[in-house]
Design a protein around this nucleic acid. Structure first.
Lengths: 205, 205
DNA sequence: TTGATAAATGAACAATGTTCATTTATTTTG
DNA sequence: CAAAATAAATGAACATTGTTCATTTATCAA
């Protein structure tokens, strides 16, 4: 059916238009300041139409949340070129940090906002495939580091979690501007400096 | 003036009552679900009265934010008993993690919520003494580790930031339940296991 | 007792997320 | 092609929020 196809395509298009506009407004004005009305208005549709495509505001947040993880996964693809596991581990952290720095609002949405996860709870049984995929890349890399003789006596999963926590913590603190409040000398470069210390630290192991 | 004193005390009392009740509701129902009306109702005062004692909702959040840092600083006091800097550094992390685990909602309010920081921006020039104090304890400890021969070739401030990021990241990921979504085998123990890996790692340096 | 000051009230407002009866557009049917 | 059926879109209406402020009530000083 060509007509059904076209209608499906049109529905998909409008759905994407809503998401695109919502993301733009989120980045510009923040999640809380972005109203369904403003989203609707920005694409010249009525409020009700938005609710025809998304159950509620959290559903929009979750959809963007998913898009964010797709993008991050895409960014991770450059890691295929790095054969040495330890170098790949460090490169992975850098890609992660770069992503957070380039898309702070998106990062916040993905990791700090609770709304998308609540939506996830409500829908299925907490299955969060995007996040799982990203963590697996890290975990696998750590395992490869270990099997190449690094991190002797360490367990892969807690170690991977530790690395994730480290980079996530740096990005979160930077994004929420807690570094500035705490009077760090160079808030602009503290993340890369902090990570450099970590890289130095693990290179010897 | 005894009367003026009593009145000042009464004002202080009511202010604290509002805070106490607000904190209780925040912990029970979450920050967003707690309305000014519900706070007022729970202490049998009218909505307007709450606004007599706090400029707006963010002011309440910031007051609790400050209380949280006071509590954390208090918890840090046990560290005076630990003379070895490296042991003290590890103990500091443990106290931090313990605090976050015991008061997840408070921790979230202190480190993830943007509202209190926005309030801070609005009032004075981003001076955030409570946070500064807590970071200084960490920074000083790291410096002492270095002067005792640990972490050779590392810079104290970025290293302190790295440690802070690590524990903050672990606590944040745990509190926001991202660990569960990502299919970590034992989400209940991953924080202590992750930290154990870190402790093992720095003990050799 | 009375007037002034401070404290407390709650109705009212604007903004928000959300719903749903109604209208409009599109497709299918006779 | 007209009419019925289906799908899509609308926006007025509702409940709930943070916030304000004219009014009332309580407290104190003269």
């Amino acid at each position: 059916m060509g007509i059904a196809d076209r209608k499906a395509r049109e529905k998909e298009d409008l759905r994407n238009l809503i998401l695109k506009s919502a993301k733009k407004l989120f980045v510009e004005k923040g999640v809380e300041q972005t109203t369904i009305r403003s989203i609707a208005e920005s694409i010249d549709y009525s409020v009700g139409t938005v609710y025809l495509y998304f159950k509620d505001k959290n559903a929009i947040l979750y959809a963007l949340h998913s898009q964010g993880f797709s993008q991050l996964s895409g960014d991770f693809k450059v890691l295929y070129n790095v054969s040495d596991p330890l170098e790949r581990l460090k490169a992975l952290c850098k890609v992660y940090i770069q992503f957070a720095g380039d898309n702070p609002d998106m990062y916040d949405l993905m990791f700090n906002l609770k709304a998308p996860m609540e939506f996830l709870d409500a829908i299925n049984e907490g299955e969060w495939n995007e996040g799982k995929g990203a963590f697996d890349v890290l975990h696998t890399t750590v395992k490869q580091c270990i099997s190449e003789g690094h991190f002797t006596g360490h367990k892969s999963e807690p170690l991977a979690f530790m690395v994730w926590s480290l980079v996530h913590g740096m990005c979160s603190l930077e994004i929420s501007k807690r570094c500035i409040g705490v009077n760090i000398k160079n808030p602009e470069t503290i993340v890369s400096e902090g990570f450099a210390e970590f890289a130095k630290l693990i290179t010897r192991l």
